[in-house]
């Protein structure tokens, strides 16, 4: 029964074990205090363990270049290879120069993000496709719309808008949303493409 406390903390209890655990917490004051004490300890421990090692490079296997470099390269070559994808991806994207197709190393779509934020001084977007770096949107005329077009590789992406540097706003045009671990709501964008 003592181990149930750690199993509870680590989400390892079965349904039957949960029943036993909750019953014990309800009737045994000492046990309850022990649970609360270890939960408090866990908060400290989890806080100490979570570190951001953002300067790592994800292996890509495409070359000796880093994933980051690959991403920048992809962004740069989008202009060249866009004509290849224009039929199946987002035709509303920025003008692309006509040109020859190049070897496609990754399916990349240009996606236009738009949000209405009348009266805001600044709107940014952050998401998995930007490496969670903030990218500024620009006003689309004077009617309160903000926009930016970004290269997005095929797959499932999470993102949110940041209004005036502090207010997180999910994309109102996207139905699928998900709460993250920090209390924010992310929109989920699925970009399909061929390999």
């Amino acid at each position: 029964m003592e181990q149930f406390i750690s199993m509870y903390i680590d989400n390892e209890l079965s349904l039957d074990e949960k029943k036993l655990f909750v019953g014990q917490v309800a009737i045994n004051k000492r046990y309850r205090e022990e649970v609360l004490d270890l939960l408090e300890q866990e908060k400290l421990l989890a806080g100490a363990l979570v570190h951001d090692v953002a300067d790592l490079e994800m292996p890509s296997g495409k070359s000796a270049n880093t994933w980051h470099t690959l991403g920048l390269g992809l962004a740069a070559c989008v202009a060249l290879c866009f004509s290849f994808f224009a039929g199946s991806f987002f035709p509303q994207t920025v003008d692309q120069p006509p040109g020859n197709s190049v070897a496609i190393v990754e399916a990349v779509a240009q996606h236009r993000f738009v949000i209405y934020q009348q009266g805001s001084a600044q709107v940014e977007i952050t998401g998995s496709f930007t490496g969670w770096q903030k990218v500024a949107l620009v006003p689309s005329g004077t009617n309160g719309y903000w926009e930016v077009t970004l290269p997005v590789v095929s797959g499932e992406h999470r993102y949110t808008f940041i209004v005036d540097g502090k207010r997180l706003v999910p994309d109102p045009t996207v139905d699928i949303q998900e709460a993250d671990d920090f209390g924010a709501i992310n929109s989920i964008l699925v970009v399909e493409g061929k390999a």
């Binding site: 181990q3 406390i5 750690s6 199993m7």
Partner: peptide, 12 residues
């Protein structure tokens, strides 16, 4: 299960 909980208790 035993070792994880024992480690937590020791840390406590």
């Amino acid at each position: 299960k035993v070792r994880v909980h024992r480690a937590r208790k020791t840390l406590q």
